[in-house]
Computed example of a mutant assay.
Amino acid sequence: MLRSISPLVLALIGLVLFGDGVYIHAKAWLAQVLLERAFDRSVATGEAVKPWPWADTWPVARIEVKRIGASAIVLEGTSGQALAFGPGHIHRTVDAGERGIAVYAAHRDTHFRFLRHVAMGDVIDVTRSDGKHFRYRADSSAVVRFDASGIDPTTRDFELVLATCWPFDAVTSAPERYVLHAILIETHE
Rank of each mutant, 00 (worst) to 15 (best):
P153C: 05
E159H: 05
H188Q: 15
D125N: 09
D95I: 10
I151M: 06
R3C: 05
W52Q: 08
I90Y: 09
L10T: 15
I183Q: 11
P153D: 03
A170H: 01
V161G: 02
L12Y: 12
H111I: 10
K27A: 12
R62I: 10
I185D: 05
P51I: 15
V94S: 13
A44D: 08
H107F: 04
R113K: 14
V126M: 02
A26I: 09
F168C: 14
T172I: 11
L2S: 07
F158Q: 08
L15F: 03
S4W: 14
G88W: 04
V144D: 06
F18C: 11
A163C: 02
D157F: 05
R135I: 13
P153K: 13
G77E: 09
P167R: 01
G14T: 14
F134A: 06
L8K: 15
R108V: 07
E64S: 07
R37I: 07
Y23S: 13
V65Q: 12
R62H: 04
R145M: 09
R156T: 10
V103T: 07
F146S: 13
K132T: 10
P59K: 01
F134K: 09
W54N: 08
F168E: 10
S140L: 03
A96P: 15
V123F: 10
R116M: 10
E176V: 04
I101E: 14
D20C: 08
A105Q: 12
D125V: 09
T154L: 14
G131E: 09
A38Q: 05
E186C: 15
A72D: 11
K66E: 12
F39N: 11
V179E: 01
L2K: 13
P175H: 01
I24L: 08
V74Q: 11
I183S: 04
A119C: 06
H25Q: 13
I13Q: 00
R145P: 02
T172H: 11
T93V: 10
R177L: 10
S71C: 14
S140Y: 04
G80V: 05
H91G: 04
W166Q: 02
A148G: 03
S173Q: 05
R3N: 12
D40W: 00
S129P: 01
G100C: 02
V123G: 02
L115Y: 13
T164E: 00
D139T: 09
S42F: 08
